[in-house]
């Protein structure tokens, strides 16, 4: 039971990191990405291989985040000229390209992935590390929102052309958003690889990318607290719906649809509605 709860905590924290990272790209900076799992996978593979080659755990994690961030920079650079719907499809393509490439690489284990990744921490240790990482990212995300860079991200998200007319180097800030967001995913990937000890390409497929985006959107795109709540909720949901395990995906799809249909600004939007209602009603 304890092991079950600890693993739930780890996966919840990993999802928080993934969702907050994507929220920096899609929420703060307005660049919808449908390929976030590719960077999660990149971090996982990089950290796993480095760890197996004998590098210390902490160094592997850091380098995993770095490699994912570097790939994010490359992808960001390649997609600078592509906007909106074109960008969504291109990033989706990056996800499929990642999968298609990894599956065919002998040195990455092909379809079977990488096994026997060392596990340097106890389950409790991993839980502390993951929660610590997630909290650090909440802090980073809150700080970013208030910083000058966050201000520019908002301008780019609202109207890229206007921002660039005002002298903002939009390309530079979009790249920053990509690097930060993908490095967060890479860090989460490194932890994931060491927690499970085994990674396969299919863990980083399109559904995983959609799941991360769903956490962002269900929580409320652009809102740090909303996204945090969305990630926790969607991690717990399959557990809560255990009794209907067979219908899990059906319910998941229907939930996405329902949130978009009736509350497109997510939990954060609902919370804002409630706050407003409370304020306007006489005490």
């Amino acid at each position: 039971m304890e092991a079950y709860i600890l693993s739930l905590v780890v996966f919840g924290a990993l999802n928080v990191m993934l969702a907050l990272g994507l929220n920096m790209i899609s929420g703060f900076c307005g660049q919808i990405s449908l390929g976030h799992a590719a960077f999660y996978g990149t971090g996982a593979y990089a950290a796993a291989l480095l760890s197996i080659s004998g590098l210390p755990f902490a160094a592997s994690l850091a380098l995993g985040a770095l490699v994912a961030g570097a790939l994010g920079l490359v992808v960001g650079f390649a997609t600078l000229r592509v906007r909106e719907d074109f960008l969504a499809i291109t990033t989706m393509g990056v996800g499929f390209l990642f999968l298609g490439f990894v599956r065919k690489q002998e040195w990455l284990g092909g379809e079977f992935g990488v096994a026997q990744i060392p596990s340097p921490l106890s389950p409790l240790g991993f839980a502390v590390l993951a929660v610590g990482g997630a909290l650090a990212m909440v802090a980073l995300s809150l700080h970013l929102r208030r910083s000058w860079m966050g201000e520019v991200f908002r301008a780019v998200a609202a109207d890229e052309d206007a921002a660039s007319t005002l002298g903002v180097d939009t390309a530079r800030y979009k790249l920053w958003a990509f690097v930060l967001g993908t490095a967060c995913a890479g860090f989460a990937g490194g932890i994931y690889a060491h927690v499970t000890g085994l990674i396969v390409p299919d863990a980083f497929d399109f559904i995983q990318s959609v799941t991360i985006l769903a956490m962002v959107v269900v929580g409320g795109i652009g809102s740090t607290w909303g996204v945090l709540a969305g990630a926790v909720l969607l991690t717990l949901m399959p557990e809560l719906f255990r009794f209907v395990n067979d219908y899990k995906l059906l319910i998941y799809g229907a939930l996405l649809l329902a949130v978009m249909r009736w509350s497109p600004s997510g939990l954060a939007g609902l919370a804002a509605l409630v706050r407003r209602a409370l304020r306007s009603s006489p005490a």
Binding site: V210, L213, L250, Y252, G253, L256, M260
Partner: peptide, 18 residues
């Protein structure tokens, strides 16, 4: 915004497939 319909569409597709 366009991502709303996109995500709704993905949700519908996942539900249909399942």
């Amino acid at each position: 915004p366009p991502y709303v319909a996109l995500i709704a569409s993905i949700g519908l597709f996942i539900a249909m497939e399942d």
